[in-house]
Amino acid sequence: MPYTAEISRTNPGCFIFLVDQSASMSDPMESGETTQPRAEVVSNAINRLLTELSVKCAKEEGVRDYFHVAVIGYGHNRVGSAYQGTLAGRDLVPLSEVANNPARVESRTKKVSDGAGGLVETSVQFPVWMDPVTNGGTPMTRALGYANTLVGHWVDMHPGGFPPIVLNLTDGESTDGDPTSAAIGLASHATADGPVLLFNLHVSGSGGAPITFPDSEEALPDTYAKLLFQMSSVLPSHMRSYAASQGHRVSESTRGFVYNADIVSIVEFLDIGTRATELR
C-alpha cells in the first residue's frame, strides 16, 4: 500500500514549501478583528509550522531529523530559498538545523485561558525563519521546476522512503506560463512508497467562503481554480482520516487543495498536508 513507509531518522520525510512572494501578496486579508497582508499571514503560518514540527521532534538530545524541510520563495526575478539568517540560501535543511537556526526568536503576546472563564495575555517565544516578501509576478512554473530538481535528488537518495510532499501556497495565476506540465513532471517522481505529493493552496482574494479539500471540480468557480485542483494530488489515507477527524467531509478522491483560503484554512492545510505516518 502506498504512503505507509515508516518515517525515521534513516528514512526521513521531506517537505518543500513553495511560497508565492508576488506583489499581490501584500493585499490585506482578514485576521481576527484586524487585517494583515496575505504574505504576513502565510509567513506566520510557515514559521508556526516549523516551530510545531521542531517541538514534535524534540527529544532530550535535541531535535531528531525525522524531516528535511525547504522553504522556497517565488516572486520578482527570483526563485530560491526563503530562509533568512544562518540558513539563507539553503534548500533542504535537516529539521535539527532548522530548529537550532531561526533567523531570530521574537517574544509575542498570546491570550490564554486564566482558568476562570477569562483570558490573560502571556508572552511566548516565536521563532522566525522567513519574513514576508512581496514583489513582482508569480513565476509558479519556475518554482515547480525548482522543486522538481530538489525532489529528483531526494528520491534518488531515499528510494524506499515516504515520498516528498510539496506544498504550494499562492494567491494568483502563474505569470510564467501554464504550470500544468511542471506539476505533472514534479509528481512523476516516486519512491517505492508512491509518487511525490503536490498540494496547492490558493489564498483568498475575495473574502468568500473557502473550498477545502474538494473531491471534484464541480463546485470550483473558474478555470484557474480547476487548474490548481487538477495539479493537486489525492490525499493519502492517513491524511484523509486526519482531515475527517478535523471535521472535513472526505472521499477517496479528496485532493490536497484549498481554494480561497482564509487564515484558518491556511493553518489547516499545513497541518493536514504535513501530517506524518507514525514516527519511529
Binding site: 516551530t51 517541538v55 524534540a58 531535535v63 530548529a99 517565544q125 521563532p127
Partner: peptide, 8 residues
C-alpha cells in the same frame, strides 16, 4: 532548556 523543549 530551549524553546523547542519548553512546550514538551
Amino acid at each position: 532548556i530551549t524553546w523547542y523543549e519548553q512546550p514538551g
